[in-house]
Amino acid sequence: MLPVRGRDDRATRALCVLGTRTAWTPVGDGEFYCPGCGGDRNYQRLTGRRRLTLLGVPVLPRGTTGPVVECAACGHHYGTDVLDHPTTRRFSAMLRDGVHTVALAVLAAGGTGSRAPLETACAAVRAGGVEDCTEDQLAALVDALAADTGRVLGEPCGASLTI
C-alpha cells in the first residue's frame, strides 16, 4: 500500500496495489446476543467469495469463506457459534418454562390432594410469566402426566417428569 499525501503532508488515502477483497452475500438474518455490543441485536448471516485485487480491481478468485454473522449495530463479524448463546428474550422464556416445569413436578409428587398447593403453584407460575394459568389447568396437566405411563422406561411408578 502506498500512502497518498495531502496538502499538510498527512496520509489521506492508501492506494492498494495488491491485496484481497471479500464480496459478502447475505443468506439469512435474525436476532442474537452480540459479544461486541453486549446486547441483543439484529444480524445478517453472510457467506463470502475472496478475490485477489490489483489496484483495487478484482482479478482472480481466491475461494469462498465460511459463513459469518455480522452485527447490524456495530458491524463486527463473528463465527456462527455466537448464535448458540441465548438472547434475553430466550432467557426469559426459559425461566418461564422452568417455573412451570418445577411447579408441575412438585404437584406431580403429591401436591394435588388439596386446593392450597394448587393455588400456590398457580401463583408461582403466574409470577414466572404465564399470566393465564389457572388451578384447573395445572390439575389437568398433572392428571395427564399421571395417565401417561407409556413413555417411562421400566415400571411405571405414577406421574413423572423428565427435565
Rank of each mutant, 00 (worst) to 15 (best):
C71E: 04
A23R: 15
T120G: 14
T101N: 02
H100D: 04
A147M: 10
V125C: 06
V125Y: 08
A144N: 07
A11D: 06
S160D: 11
D84N: 12
D132K: 15
C37R: 00
V59K: 04
R10M: 10
A147T: 09
G113N: 03
C157N: 14
A159D: 07
T88N: 10
D40Y: 00
D8K: 14
A127N: 05
R10P: 13
R126V: 15
V106Q: 10
P58F: 09
P58I: 03
R10C: 14
V99T: 02
L161S: 12
A105H: 11
Y78A: 05
G30N: 04
V142H: 07
P117S: 03
W24K: 00
R5H: 15
G98S: 12
A139P: 05
P61D: 10
R45K: 14
V27C: 10
V99A: 02
V130S: 15
D9V: 11
V99R: 04
G79H: 06
V59M: 08
V102F: 10
V106R: 13
L54P: 04
P67W: 00
R126I: 12
R90I: 09
R89W: 10
L118Q: 04
R5Y: 14
G154W: 00
V27R: 06
T112S: 14
G75N: 05
L52D: 01
R62K: 08
E119D: 13
N42A: 09
L52I: 04
T87P: 00
G36P: 08
R89F: 07
L60Y: 07
G6R: 06
M94W: 14
A147P: 07
P156E: 03
P35Q: 01
G19D: 11
G150Y: 08
G75E: 09
P117D: 05
A105D: 12
R51M: 09
V68T: 11
T80R: 07
S92W: 12
L153I: 10
G39W: 04
G19A: 08
Q137C: 08
R89Q: 14
H100N: 05
Q137M: 11
G56Y: 02
H85L: 03
T101W: 02
D81F: 03
T47A: 10
V17R: 12
G154M: 01
G98P: 01
V59S: 04
L18Y: 11
D84S: 13
C133P: 08
V68M: 11
G6M: 02
E70T: 06
G110M: 02
L145C: 06
V125E: 06
R51I: 00
G66M: 00
P3N: 03
R49G: 03
V27K: 05
A147Y: 13
R51Y: 12
T47S: 10
E70Q: 15
C157V: 13
D143Y: 04
D148M: 06
V4L: 13
G36L: 03
V4A: 11
E119I: 04
R7A: 11
L52R: 04
E155N: 09
T134Y: 02
L95T: 12
